[in-house]
Amino acid sequence: MAADTELTPTSYINHHLTHLTAHVSGDGGFWTLHVDTFVTSLILGVLGIGFLWLVVRKATAGVPSKRQAFVELTVEFIDSQVKNTFHGDRHTFVAPLALTVFVWVLMMNAMDILPIDILAWIYEHLFGLHNWRTVPTTDVNTTFALALSVWLLMLFFNLKVKGVAGWAYELFCTPFGKNPLMWPLNLLFNFIEYVSKPLSHSLRLFGNIYAGEIIFLLIGMWAATGVTGTIFGTLLGAGWAIFHILIVTLQAFIFMMLTVVYISMAHESH
């Protein structure tokens, strides 16, 4: 916690919700980088994917080690989900994509469960970092980056699988039919769909994790009000953290499933 400012609820929350920023070029605006988001997500990604890689590198077809069995369980779970949704060669792209999304988002979401104030103390006193937000998915930039990447992949596969003509036909002639009178309506409808997909995709994840973070902050604030507050704060914090295990996993799973669904929709013509 900031030692030089007076501790008020506003300053407490502000402190926890301020990014460590760096200017990539010029004096800010778009060219600002949230160093905490970027570095944390990178570390988590390397840890998560790296763990998979380390295990998979030594994977045997014989009796698997417990670690390999765990990885296989995860991978086969995701693979079966993808298989149910995506009909085609899923091994070249879609299933590994789903695995990446699930593992990375799960790792980033899981940071939410770590106790914020202890982490803030560690950042402040061990690394000399005053502002450092631990959960990358409470940063819209992360969720939008993921959702927009998926969106671009969606556009790419639309063009690749259906071709320009096929995609244009789909944009103009579905879902209300190919009557020329319906073309504007179809286009409008598809346009809204294409805009809403990345928005809902990213904001669902962001909203859930951000709200969870805020509730942790509120519970933390209550804990600072006295003995009663501390006791209830502890109980509620523990309860919310346990409930958050579900939310963290569920949101990662939903994000992955939506990714798979969007990509498979791009593969299937109506």
Binding site: L33, S41, W53, A61, P96, P136, N141, L148
Partner: peptide, 29 residues
């Protein structure tokens, strides 16, 4: 802000890595 671009880049690298080094050996096994 620019964080979005950096995250997207990191994402694409992770995807590439998974496709190339994580998925095939495990599937093969």
């Amino acid at each position: 802000n620019f964080t979005l671009v950096s995250q997207a880049l990191a994402f694409s690298i992770f995807i590439w890595f998974t496709i190339k080094y994580v998925w095939p050996p495990l599937m093969q096994a």
